[in-house]
């Protein structure tokens, strides 16, 4: 098993609140790892640590390691913009920029220095195709991305993340604000994307975890209770707490 992302004894505090406790987790290449657990269990915090978006919280304190391709991302030599280029993120609420669809997708490549119009056109088309929304928007690339439906906006956000050609894609409850049809489109998309990317998703929805993920990690009160192949975790959980959670006894 080739883990692209790996955490070693990861601890995180928000002020006095010990939000992540000694997390050791491997996220293998070209697989979907789902993080599940009740609200406030630390799964989103964990996800945000993987591309250092938690750096934006002023009171945060982190110990331990997150290894991206064997490089500790907290190493002072690591450029955080380099990391975020390679570890992309899709947020819970669709958040396209208030710009045209084209400019949304081209934002990342432009930021990283691509100015050539033809090259940008290619990236935009490829990314939109990659996010399975090209056919729906190809005739209105100059229209505002905010004019699209929520599900389309979320796929624009996925396309925007793909445009910088990341290695890993983090998705923070990326379907929780969407209707069932949009959700199923994005789930199909995830299955397609994992051929080229390594994906980590946070989800509240256990059916979704069983549908899309290869591996599953169960978080509770800031601890990683259990991580295993999704099928195993849901059929023969090792820990009593996991069993209670997946059978719906709490959460």
């Amino acid at each position: 098993m080739n883990a692209i992302l790996k955490t070693e004894n990861l601890n995180l505090w928000y002020g006095q609140n010990h939000a992540l406790k000694d997390i050791n987790l491997e996220m293998p290449q070209n697989q979907v790892t789902a993080l599940i657990g009740p609200s406030g269990c630390g799964k989103s915090t964990f996800l945000k640590t993987l591309d250092r978006m938690n750096d934006l919280v002023p009171t945060v304190k982190i110990e331990g390691k997150v290894l991206y391709r064997d490089q500790n991302i907290f190493d002072p030599q690591v450029d955080v913009t380099w990391l975020r280029r390679h570890v992309g993120m899709v947020f819970q609420k669709p958040n396209p920029f208030p710009m045209s669809i084209y400019d949304n997708i081209a934002y990342g490549p432009r930021t990283h220095g691509i100015r050539n119009k033809k090259q940008l056109d290619e990236i935009v088309e490829k990314s939109l195709r990659g996010a399975a929304i090209w056919d729906e928007v190809k005739d209105r690339l100059k229209k505002s991305a905010l004019s699209l439906s929520g599900g389309q906006q979320q796929r624009i956000c996925i396309a925007r993340a793909l445009a910088v050609e990341p290695d890993v894609l983090l998705m923070d409850e990326a379907t929780s604000a969407l209707d069932p049809i949009s959700t199923s489109k994005i789930e199909d998309l995830i299955a397609e994307l994992k051929k080229s990317y390594t994906i980590v998703i946070v989800t509240h929805n256990m059916q979704q975890a069983t549908r899309v993920s290869d591996r599953c990690a169960f978080f509770l009160h800031g601890e990683l209770v259990e991580a295993d192949d999704t099928e195993k975790l849901f059929s023969v959980p090792k820990d009593k707490r996991t069993e209670d959670y997946i059978t719906g006894r709490f959460g």
């Binding site: 591309d51 978006m53 934006l56 913009t81 380099w82 990391l83 975020r84 280029r85 992309g88 993120m89 947020f91 958040n95 396209p96 920029f97 208030p98 934002y107 990342g108 930021t111 990283h112 956000c157 925007r160 993340a161 910088v164």
Partner: peptide, 10 residues
């Protein structure tokens, strides 16, 4: 908006 931009490596 700003988070999305930072997450893209800006």
């Amino acid at each position: 908006y700003e988070e999305a931009s930072l997450a893209l490596g800006a």
